[in-house]
């Protein structure tokens, strides 16, 4: 249990600090916007952006501490999963990128998808389409690597 302390510490600081920042930031934005110093939406955007960046940086920190704690076989599983699963996921995303980038088929796909939504929806969908196949590939390869070597 003692060896997990750095991971627990990083997790508590990341999520505890993040929640505290969001709470205090919300109060500050409420005060600043009611005093007319800043538009409420702009204040919320700043607090949310800082919160998101801090949580992601904290997630990297937690991951670094966790990688130091696990043994070398577990690390190898994640390296293999990242390379093969992540690469395979990127290949899936690559097909979507090629089809949506150029050529007459682009219009056909656009018609099939339909209209509606705003540009920010497309940004969100694009980010999700980039991350999801990589995460799925990562999970599949990690499970295959682990079960192939660690059963028994």
């Amino acid at each position: 249990m003692r060896k997990w302390r750095p991971v627990i510490k990083a997790t508590v600081i990341t999520f505890g600090g993040g929640l505290l920042f969001a709470f205090l930031g919300g109060i500050a934005v409420g005060y600043a916007s009611s005093s007319g110093w800043i538009a409420p939406e702009m204040g919320e955007l700043i607090v949310t952006a800082v919160f998101a960046a801090a949580i992601m940086a904290g997630a990297l920190w937690i991951g670094a501490e966790w990688m130091r704690v696990i043994d070398e076989a577990a690390r190898e599983a994640h390296k293999a999963a990242w390379y093969w699963g992540g690469t395979a996921g990127m290949c899936v995303s690559g097909v979507a990128l090629i089809l949506s980038s150029a050529g007459p088929w682009r219009d056909i796909i656009a018609r099939e998808i339909g209209s509606g939504g705003s540009p920010i929806d497309y940004v969100s969908a694009g980010a999700a389409l980039m991350i999801a196949p990589m995460l799925i590939g990562y999970t599949v390869v990690w499970a295959w690597w682990w079960l192939a070597r660690m059963r028994g």
């Binding site: 043994d71 070398e72 076989a73 577990a74 070597r149 660690m150 028994g152």
Partner: peptide
Amino acid sequence: GVSRQTVNALET
């Protein structure tokens, strides 16, 4: 300083 599963994977 490794997991039991790692020892098993090494032995096999």
